[in-house]
């Protein structure tokens, strides 16, 4: 197991290096000079040159790459071209909303999907199965912003249980903050839970028809015991993969939901930065997201290793 972890760590570092190179290169080839953008169209040539000097845009590409990477490693993401504030502060400000929101949505989606998928698989063809399949079909099909607006109308405007949007900050207390994140989390979780429940169902159905389930039954296990002791752990591998992918998406992909609920999250930040050619912010946020994705994949890999001893032999 130790060697397996070491291998995965090795892969993690290599992916990070490659990702940083790609992101840096991609942002460099995007047309548009941040200095001229900041100074407007009527700026003098020498003013632009001076600003470029000040922003550190005049040194060679490699130097800029190394400054950027070494800065990031030390937690210094540079200074935003547009707002003149440290990028790390801007990201931190948004992360306190986006990260809890993503975790909240992921927890909800797992809590809904697991029981739904298990019930559907164990009672294949029953009313429960057909309803789970129908509802999840709908959950995948409905655009989540529309569902979000529907929830705002019902729970915020008509019933008044939740506020229609905005975030009071964590200073307002844990419950107040979580309450503000509840509707967005549900809106984010619905399509994810639908996909996850379907994956859980089909994976479990495959596993339940395996020979070792029959062996377990021949040992005297009841259907339920065979499911919990033998089928579930084997069925979990594809489900874990989907969860890993979903978390990465939830962290930054919630921009539409952030818009609907007026949440100043990471998605909004990256959107603003792109429109304002604030390349240093774009680079940093994208790098951070890549880091999050790679980290989550690493965690999923470790979970694989725990779930399936065959993978521990570190063949990849």
């Amino acid at each position: 197991m130790f060697r397996y972890i070491l291998k995965r760590l090795q892969a993690l570092v290599i992916s990070l290096i490659i990702a940083s190179l790609v992101i840096f290169a991609a942002v460099e080839v995007v047309p548009g000079d941040p200095a001229s953008f900041m100074l407007g169209i009527n700026a003098q040539e020498d003013t632009i040159m001076a600003l470029r000097e000040q922003l550190g845009l005049n040194v060679s590409l490699w130097e800029r790459y190394f400054t950027w990477v070494t800065g990031m490693v030390q937690g210094d993401f540079g200074t935003s071209y547009t707002y003149r504030t440290p990028v790390s502060d801007m990201i931190a400000e948004r992360m306190v909303i986006s990260l809890p929101l993503a975790l909240y949505a992921l927890t909800l989606s797992t809590l809904i999907a697991f029981p739904a998928g298990i019930i559907a698989a164990t009672r294949r063809g029953s009313v429960a199965d057909v309803s789970v399949m129908g509802v999840t079909q709908l959950g995948v099909a409905i655009p989540n912003f529309w569902f979000a607006m529907l929830m705002v109308v019902v729970f915020a405007i008509n019933l008044g249980w939740f506020s229609a949007g905005g975030f009071p900050g964590w200073d307002a207390g844990f419950f107040a903050a979580m309450k503000a994140l509840t509707l967005p989390a549900i809106a984010l979780a619905l399509p994810q839970a639908s996909i996850l429940a379907r994956v859980m169902r089909s994976s479990l159905l495959d596993t339940l028809s395996e020979d070792y389930i029959r062996t377990a039954r021949a040992k005297g296990l009841t259907r339920r015991q065979a499911l919990w002791r033998h089928a579930l752990r084997n069925a979990l591998i594809p489900v874990l993969t989907i969860i890993g992918l979903q978390f990465a998406f939830l962290l930054a992909g919630g921009i539409i939901i952030e818009k609907v609920f007026f949440l100043p999250g990471l998605g909004q930040l990256i959107f603003q930065a792109i429109t304002q050619r604030d390349l240093i912010v774009v680079e940093s946020v994208v790098m951070l997201l890549v880091f999050a994705v790679i980290l989550v994949n690493f965690a999923v890999d470790l979970a694989y290793g725990i779930a399936d001893p065959r993978l521990r032999r570190a063949r990849t």
Partner: peptide
């Protein structure tokens, strides 16, 4: 089928 009759993760 002995190859598939055992649970691979136990």
């Amino acid at each position: 089928e002995p190859m598939t009759a055992l649970n691979p993760v136990k």
